[in-house]
């Protein structure tokens, strides 16, 4: 018997299953992003250092994370960590580790750019008023840096959410994989199921990412 694919979408728990898959992706992105913000802020402050060794090491870390496709990093952590360090991570945890490593690097660069984009005289003036370096950072530099940082951080979150489908390749059942699992057993009853299910997955991603990117653009415009 042949049915239209759209019925497949609403049959039984299928739609809820897709949403659950989306939540798996989102949980990875959210957790990794929160960790990246904390670690990346630290890294970004370190990166403004004038020490050559520090500069070189942080730069090397950033470039490595940037240049390697995320899927390669996922493979390295998922397969090699077990082999050489006997650390057994499941796909979900491996994904969180990789996205945190990558996010920290990207976040560090954003923080560094935000801090260095603040004119030097702000720093000198605050020092001339008798504030300690720590006070200057907290009361003068950081509040301004955060304003410049927020839109770019939201954009990074968006990019991270859009990179999460990769985790399907190391066996995490996220939204695309769930879609595949719904389609495969129904191949004959619902021949055009894949059109509808994958279309819905795209729509779900759009529904999550579009508002986020709007907010980022709005903030960018307001604070520029």
């Amino acid at each position: 018997m042949r049915h239209s694919g759209i019925e497949l979408l609403f049959q039984g728990q299928n739609f809820l299953r897709l949403l659950h898959g989306l939540w798996v992706s989102a949980s990875i992105a959210l957790l990794a992003m929160s960790l990246s913000i904390v670690l990346g802020t630290g890294l970004g402050i370190v990166m403004t250092s004038k020490n050559r060794v520090v500069k070189f090491v942080t730069r090397a870390y950033l470039e490595t994370m940037r240049i390697m496709p995320q899927i390669v990093l996922l493979f390295l952590v998922f397969f090699d960590l077990t082999r050489y360090f006997n650390v057994n991570l499941d796909g979900w945890s491996a994904a969180v580790v990789v996205f945190t490593l990558w996010g920290t690097a990207e976040m560090g660069d954003l923080v560094r750019a935000a801090i260095t984009s603040i004119p030097k005289h702000q720093y000198s003036s605050a020092r001339a008023l008798g504030m300690t370096p720590w006070q200057v950072q907290r009361a003068v530099i950081l509040p301004q840096a955060i304003r410049r940082l927020l839109p770019t951080t939201i954009n990074l979150t968006n990019r991270m959410i859009m990179t999460t489908p990769l985790v399907a390749l190391i066996g995490v059942v996220e939204v695309l994989k769930t879609g595949q699992q719904i389609i495969d057993p129904n191949r004959f009853a619902y021949p055009d199921g894949s059109l509808w299910i994958y279309g819905t997955v795209l729509l779900l991603y759009f529904a999550v990412c579009f508002p986020i990117s709007r907010v980022a653009r709005l903030l960018e415009r307001r604070w520029s």
Binding site: N158, M162, T164, A168, L195, Y198, G199, V201, Y205
Partner: peptide, 23 residues
Amino acid sequence: VEISRNTPLLGQLFFLYYGLPKL
């Protein structure tokens, strides 16, 4: 631009490769 920037490539490829042949 909005559709392309707010959906992952993997999803787009699935749709193109597995979805569109149904049409």
